[in-house]
Design a protein around this nucleic acid. Structure first.
Lengths: 339, 339
DNA sequence: TTTATTTACGAAACCGTTTTCGCAAATTAC
DNA sequence: GTAATTTGCGAAAACGGTTTCGTAAATAAA
């Protein structure tokens, strides 16, 4: 049971003042090289570690950021965390992970927590319920910078790193139309989520352009459970005028579509062609291999983190709002019928 | 730009002392109900939030734990984080996420960081390089409780929540032998990782029991990159005495095995039967559906967190070492040839 | 040689809480 | 009616650092 040593005790051992120790550890120019060396040596010999909370109390820097996600069991978010971590690590920042579980209520209380000074900034992908950004704007007014990554809430007030959602919705629809689909459906998970809306808009624009439009080919699956989503998709695929092509807006829908098709013996891509917005690694080894719109998840995370840290550095930069768009790519595989 | 208010200012507004405010907010019995109400009302009206770092400086509780993972882009770890978060959330604890990227060096410096008082406890799944637990034991000696989840380092000194690795290695091998495999290989990713060793031991025991043993049918793929792993597996599967059955010790090997098989036109399960230790969701829709040994990832995370918080509560309980085993299950699908 | 400046360090205030201790006033016991 | 206890609150000392400011000695400038 080693005793934890503090700066006062370290100073006592060295027969200098705590001020000197503090400055030496922070490599202040006020301290001579010889003293610095002595301090460093003793600190490491006695296993002294600085207390980060005491530091941050004084200098109002927590060296920590919050990463708020709707969920973590999703390849996109895992990769994004990796990207975020890669830049945080370089500058000695820490990552506090919060999960909103797609609930606005949770998101609000998480943001509330972020106001305490616990974090220097916030990276967030909003929940599918988030229909306004008041809680986020209020946080930013308290001088805590925020950057959206991927799932933004539209508006000019908050910086964001997103992908080209409209364009990709368009590309996905064009791709399926080009492969002969007549009855396309876009599967969304939320009516308020901007990424879903934009992807759907791009999708709809493609249908209009190709005169392939029908009424209401945007299906919103805002079901709570996996089972509900499953049964809604099943209903859709066994209905009278069932679609022959699907664009799914998020990763977790891929699974349900494939499983339902297995259940009802519908073959992909012959009877149903599928494109999913997803970074799922197993796409190439699925049955059949899944055509995806693949977002640059790691880069989105990395870029968002870099942007956030830039804001954290210059305290005034909250005012300059940036939007960075990193394009996704269509990875054509068998599920969409082309290959 | 709202001004952040502190306790002193709140006290001034209320014309009481900071002591009173503090006690009121902490629901102390020393404070009358009427005063408490007044304090709560003013606090919420003025958007007062308590400064967690000032609190933790005083009462030596950070309300934060560290979760150290080898990587995050892995379904098992994502699910485990969910489990951990579910219990942390209930008691108002925060999750600091660290990634070791499978490097002992990183792990050591992360642990070093944990000594600072930044966290009240540590949950860790060790890196594949972790060949001793000195750094972890030292941390525990500084009175910061640790609990392993899944990837432990063997030894009697640290509590752990693991799965029945030996047994599952055994079951996997038995399963493949039962399905007619003659030349089994176990793919490991590390020679020091206990889970790999135990799984391999169970595997070997099955071969011995069935007199199906050969020399060196444990292959260790401690390659750095995905490409290296890929080419090593390719070499294995195209070699003279190539295996007709594979047990892969971790999730990320599944992908490589499947891809190599596609490349060299080897059909699963006819020419090669496969079982993987994995919680991968897409297992049922792979081509062919993948037989897995599925760990109870969420429960492992949840249980480990509960155990850790128990230790955090009673400061003395570091001495009682617990081992909890949550069994995995064989999910039989087509890749192993049985169905 | 005298004066100005720089260098190297220490005393003490401060960051925002919690907690101990003391003390009146109110309540209860006798 | 007095003594003992309880109740409700405040002053002040922590917690472990950082930073401002002052100052003596060392160096540079004159």
């Amino acid at each position: 049971m080693m005793k934890k040593i503090n700066m006062r005790e370290l100073a006592k051992v060295l027969k200098v003042s705590v001020a000197t120790v503090s400055k030496a550890l922070n490599n202040s120019h006020e301290i001579s090289e010889t003293t610095k060396e002595k301090v460093l040596e003793a600190a490491s010999r006695l296993h002294y570690t600085i207390n980060p909370y005491a530091s941050s109390l004084r200098n109002k820097k927590s060296k920590t950021i919050a990463v708020i996600l709707p969920e973590v069991a999703d390849n996109f978010f895992s990769l994004a965390i990796n990207g975020i971590q890669s830049v945080a690590e370089k500058i000695g920042y820490h990552l506090l992970i919060y999960l909103s579980h797609e609930k606005l209520k949770n998101e609000i209380s998480i943001i509330e927590d972020c106001k305490s000074g616990r974090v220097d900034g916030v990276l967030i992908s909003v929940s599918s319920e988030t229909s306004n950004a008041d809680h986020l704007l209020k946080l930013q007014q308290e001088n805590i910078p925020i950057v959206f990554f991927d799932r933004e809430f539209e508006g000019p007030k908050i910086s964001k790193v997103v992908t080209n959602d409209f364009e990709c919705g368009n590309i996905a629809a064009m791709h399926l139309l080009g492969n002969g689909c007549k009855r396309l459906v876009f599967l969304s998970i939320s009516s308020c989520l901007a990424i879903c809306r934009k992807r759907a808009d791009g999708f709809s624009a493609a249908l209009r352009e190709k005169k392939a439009g029908q009424t209401s080919n945007i299906v919103i699956l805002d079901a709570e459970t996996k089972e509900d989503i499953h049964s809604e998709i099943r209903k859709l695929l066994t209905s009278e005028n069932r679609p022959d092509g699907i664009v799914a807006s998020v990763e977790r829908l891929a699974m349900s579509v494939y499983l339902v098709c297995k259940e009802i013996d519908m073959t992909i891509p012959d009877q149903l062609k599928v494109v999913v917005f997803s970074t799922i690694e197993t796409a190439p080894i699925l049955d059949p291999p899944l055509t995806t719109i693949t977002q640059p998840a790691f880069e989105i995370g990395r870029t968002a983190a870099e942007l956030l840290f830039k804001k954290i550095k210059k305290k005034t930069s909250n005012l300059t709002i940036e939007t960075i768009v990193l394009p996704s790519v269509l990875m054509e595989r068998r599920s969409s019928g082309g290959l």
